[in-house]
Write a protein that binds this DNA or RNA. Structure first.
Lengths: 345, 345
DNA sequence: CTGAAAGCGCTTACAG
DNA sequence: CTGAAAGCGCTTACAG
């Protein structure tokens, strides 16, 4: 139960706090909004009144009188496999809860001709203060320029292009991919297949580049035949995997650009009776739950998605509150997770 | 671009609409809120003014002056495997979008001593109008009685106890489980292991009862030795599966109460070199993505979760708007999905 | 460092 | 069936 000092109304408002603290409502407002220029003793009086009355500012009143809604939108392509988005969601929720913001979700279907218009409607309807955009939506200039025009600050998760003037976050995909490839090479693999991700995602090219670099550093000749275009889906992994396994000189290892595709490759290997890892090593990216739920468990790369999303959303909140641009953080590091789907050739 | 009739303000408000339609703001309000007692011709004038000005009611103003926030909360236990929640979320989002409501998420950790207090804070902070509760939170009487006391209408997804006075939704788990068991029995299985779900979920007992009934109907003696207590997690499925496989008379088939646990059983069978389905049939429940991403693909039961969640949330919205209790829908039907993880003994 | 006044855009309660 | 007035609980813009 909340302390029941007043019984006539269900909740204390700013006048109640002002009265108890012996100040004006404007001063209460200053304290609540952490504005400077409040005398320490005054601030303390107000804070204790707020505490005594269990006062919580009314979001509707704030939204109506002020120019902000304290709402942040999260726009994403509604995925079949939600593991990645779940982490993005949890990170953003944590940051919003900490910062006193509300998170609103807007799943979208892609491709979508009315994308920009859908997002415009979303902004107008909810009057949100800022927006978190996930890949690949964060790379569509129709979207980003619309939001710039509407003056909605936004924060991008893993965009293709890192720009100084946009809050964004990324991880060192290229390096992680090179390390993963290097591990396989060190285990004696010389013929390594690579399944690319969806072409619209920044991670796709970065991971591919890392693979190429590791081959080069080890003087292994790159071959187009070893590369397939996937789309991050389990099915595409299955198809590409099948294709690679049916090559006359089939690779002894396959790198899939995410775990779902790697699971597809492993599924296909089972179908073909190929033993993993003795006959074929398979590795993925992301360390989503599926990595430990298939057999054998998957060697992969852990990306700190929750932390990235939380950090980015938090920076967006700081930017909204301070009304000053924030610097994007440096790329986050990934971690190799070695399990039994890969091994020496 | 919205039609730019006015250029002094960014958006039309209720006064602009009233002026253009030649009525009072109260009449506009009536039309917007679909109240009866508005003359047809008046309604049409107002509607065309609304359209011409691209008017959208300001949620903050509504929330401040009215007694409703048009916000619905969704409370759930934050799961490691999000497949089920993803469907719940999507169904609820769809219903909210259709009905002009906003959905707010509140993931919680269980067990949680301050559960009721966390939910109270959530309600007070967001001033939500109604709440959707998922299992097992919907069965905690501390939560439901708190919400009743706070007069927050709520809607329960798969509660243990279906009550006339609470909006809730369920599927015919018991029947689906009996059918699934019957399929195995018809294929010649006489020794069938069963892994229960988390004891706090209603589905757990229903699915177990269906299993028992099918055995009985086929005059197969029930044995406690064939039953294990799982917790819906992959790990618990692995442990229980291992346990059952190590019995002197091991079962020829195992029913796991959800897909994640069935995936755990299959993982363990791979570890032990047991062939599926020739040496062991394994079936699950829910038809989540993992069912088709492991090898061999899983025989399971499809529960129309998106549809259930959408239907329930929609009923809650109708209840909130009409302020009249709605009847809970009849249990939804599940569908058998036969894949290759099960087969004749 | 602090406060009095106006106003955000709706709904409620009341009147006719 | 329709409308004029009051007020929801804050913030803004201004004054001191």
């Amino acid at each position: 139960m909340a302390p029941g000092i007043r019984s006539d109304k269900s909740r204390a408002n700013i006048f109640d706090v002002a009265e108890l603290a012996g100040v004006s409502i404007k001063t209460v407002s200053r304290v609540v909004n952490k504005e400077p220029n409040v005398q320490r003793s005054t601030r303390e009086k107000v804070e204790s009144a707020i505490h005594a009355l269990a006062y919580r500012p009314n979001a509707a009143a704030r939204g109506l009188s002020g120019k902000r809604s304290y709402v942040i939108g999260l726009v994403y392509e509604n995925p079949r496999e939600f593991s990645y988005m779940k982490d993005v969601l949890n990170g953003a929720l944590e940051a919003c809860e900490m910062g006193g913001y509300t998170l609103l979700l807007r799943p979208l279907k892609l491709p979508n001709e009315s994308l920009a218009d859908d997002i415009r409607q979303f902004v107008l309807q909810t009057r949100l203060d800022g927006m978190v955009l996930t890949a690949p939506i964060c790379d569509y200039s129709t979207v980003t320029s619309l939001l710039a025009e509407m003056k909605i600050p936004c924060a991008l998760i893993s965009p293709t292009e890192l720009r100084e003037d946009r809050l964004s976050i990324a991880c060192n995909d290229e390096e992680a991919s090179a390390s993963l490839t290097q591990i396989l090479i060190s285990q004696g693999h010389k013929s390594i297949g690579f399944i690319k991700g969806h072409p619209d995602h920044s991670a796709t090219n970065n991971r591919f580049q890392g693979y190429c670099r590791a081959l080069e550093e080890n003087k292994i000749r790159f071959s187009e035949k070893m590369v397939r275009q996937g789309y991050f889906s389990f099915e595409s992994g299955k198809d590409c995997g099948k294709n690679l396994m049916e090559l006359v000189n089939r690779p002894s290892a396959i790198i899939a650009s995410n775990d779902d595709m790697a699971a597809g490759v492993i599924f296909e290997a089972h179908e073909k009776g190929l033993k993993i890892p003795s006959e074929l090593s398979v590795v993925g990216f992301d360390d989503t739950p599926i990595a430990t739920q298939i057999w054998p468990p998957l060697t992969t790369v852990r990306q700190p998605i929750v932390e990235m999303s939380r950090t980015l959303t938090n920076l967006l909140i700081v930017e909204l509150q301070s009304r000053h641009r924030q610097l994007s953080p440096a790329p986050f590091s990934c971690e190799m997770v070695i399990r039994s789907s890969s091994g020496p050739r």
